[in-house]
Design a protein around this nucleic acid. Structure first.
Lengths: 199, 199, 199, 199
DNA sequence: CAATAAACGAGACGGTACGTCCCGTCTTCAG
DNA sequence: CTGAAGACGGGACGTACCGTCTCGTTTATTG
């Protein structure tokens, strides 16, 4: 969630946000986005499916993209990318395989492209997207690089941030443009290009 | 245009497409997308600004994304990326700088993200996007690589298609996510990663 | 037709109106009005069904109601109402039965109500409707009354024009409002009211 | 209204119909029909003038004719035709004069002809028109006849329903076809024909 | 017997309105 | 006193036709 929402029982005065509604809305949103895509998903249908009023959605999220932003965040459990195989190549191979599986099994692609598109004309959304999705992602990608640096696998001159960005770029490009390139070759080729010929 | 439209005075039966309207619509679309972004652009406003009826738009394009696809294609004159500096690094540096300028000066970013987003739930659009934008782009990126191969700058093992894709991925990622990374460093870093330390 | 159109071969310079098209248009109009009603009938469909261009319709009729006016006129062959049974009651009984049958078997009701409705806001149409439909009708209804006057069945004081109008009013009212009143009783009752108890 | 609509504050679940909008729509419809006639009146303009969304009209009326049906009903206050002068002739003279004034001062003629025309191809509308306009009208016309029967002015053999229908037919015919017949003569002649020579 | 000029079929054009969907806000009432 | 239900003003959708306007093509005198 964008702001650290207060739940029933967490705080003092008045009634607090209903955990049940919150969950039902996100679940309904996930379903509807999966079925109709990002554009096809309407607040109206999400509310109906969640069994809530529209107002309950607008009370907690400014608009569809912000709901989707939270939804996207929930689809990737933070731990999913944390690996420590002992080698840089091993870490990234694991991350890559998990990511590709993640995108195959969730409506994340639809969400991602929709959010990127809406960000083009909504700076606030762009900022939130950066902070909550891109930033977090970069951290997870830089951790293995930092460990590799400690192990001496890469040296000081290696631009870690650039590598992380290029990795994300490649994965998202593949995801959103559905390149027909065989997966195995893609994985190997990408890693070789980023980290060197063999490993 | 998607199909080689017939204009006034060209052969065949019946009435012909109006060159003037066609042009006015694309021009209006460019304006409106620039001002309001991809989503904010409505067929209604484009028609009004072009001084045409809505039906004239729907007669020639299936829907907004298809109009935008054609518009995107027209924004990049095919020749804009054709360079031959004599070296691989030189070619790509030139291409990269032209691309970055292109995206700074046209509504291409808004179009691009919108088209990618809509492609997620419209396979026909995805296919058209691949064929008309991605495919064409790939060709232009592979030409310099082929010349470099002939000159012996890169060897047979170098995966040209992968390099071209990664290049596009990096550029679009930077474009759509507005990474704050300084341009100079981005250019150098990307080329180094793709083609090696110095070249 | 509203103006005495010139047909092929009738007159001097240039090309002349095509008899075949004229007929095909009226025929198509009759069909379409029968199938879709007065409002549902579009010039576009009439043209398509007649196998003509729309312009050919607009060349000869100002608009749909004028086409329908001519069509209505053609549905009632002028002779259909001319009877001379020897008695006033007999004449009107015959006329009435023919009219009721006429309306049962042609799209005249749809045309009539549509024309009356459009006449409310188009004085020129109202005038044409009066002259070409109402006027002609009145004549045919007054002829039997004039003969009855000569025979002495009715006297000078009898308001022939009023009777004719009331007769038309009653028939159209029945036609357009579909009163459930049994036909036999309607016929007898109307004639009794207009011309007296027995006759 | 066609169905006994629920207003704010009336019983039952959910949100209620807005009295203000309902009234504003009917008022706007009356204006627009008066200005542009039945066909010229568009839902779009009515909504704009009423200051409502189009959907608010479509939510409560199936289509233009149904809105007009309600409007027509409101133009004739039910009491307008209730008279009791003590004589049949007196009652009908009063009714006739009121009707003629009513049609002179309201857009009723445009509505009436439009509704009749649309009824030709919409049986549900025809039924509603019968029930809500014709039926009610017939009642009001039969009351004076029933009183006359009690007073002995007319006998059992007099077909009251037929007389009422012929009266309506004559009035509407005159109204919609704008016969130039002088009003005084029309009134006298019609009543004489229906009820006898003198009174 | 061409030349020519109108009428023709076809259908694109600038428009208006349709009836629908959904937006984000506002109001009502049941729990 | 929250929250589902849903009406509201509004904007855009994509479609149907309007009546006008080219387009070639046919056709039937006229020079």
């Amino acid at each position: 969630m964008i702001e650290p929402a207060l739940y029933d029982g967490e705080a003092s005065e008045g009634t607090r946000r209903s955990r049940a509604s919150h969950k039902a809305i996100l679940q309904a949103a996930a379903e509807v986005v999966r079925e109709r895509g990002y554009f096809g998903a309407s607040i109206e249908e999400i509310a109906a499916r969640a069994g809530t009023g529209k107002q309950t959605i607008y009370r907690w999220w400014r608009a569809k993209p912000y709901l989707c932003l939270e939804l996207y965040g929930l689809l990737v459990p933070a731990t999913a990318l944390e690996v420590d195989s002992g080698s840089l190549r091993g870490d990234y191979e694991a991350i890559l395989r998990r990511l590709l599986k993640f995108y195959r099994t969730t409506p994340a692609a639809a969400l991602l492209s929709g959010l990127i598109a809406e960000s083009q004309s909504d700076p606030a959304l762009a900022e939130a997207f950066q902070r909550r999705i891109v930033g977090q992602r970069r951290h997870l990608l830089i951790d293995p690089l930092a460990r590799a640096r400690e192990r001496g696998e890469i040296d000081e001159a290696f631009d870690q941030a650039l590598a992380a960005d290029l990795f994300t770029a490649a994965v998202w490009h593949r995801l959103l443009l559905g390149s027909a390139r065989a997966e195995k070759r893609f994985v190997a080729g990408l890693l070789e290009t980023l980290f060197g010929e063999r490993s």
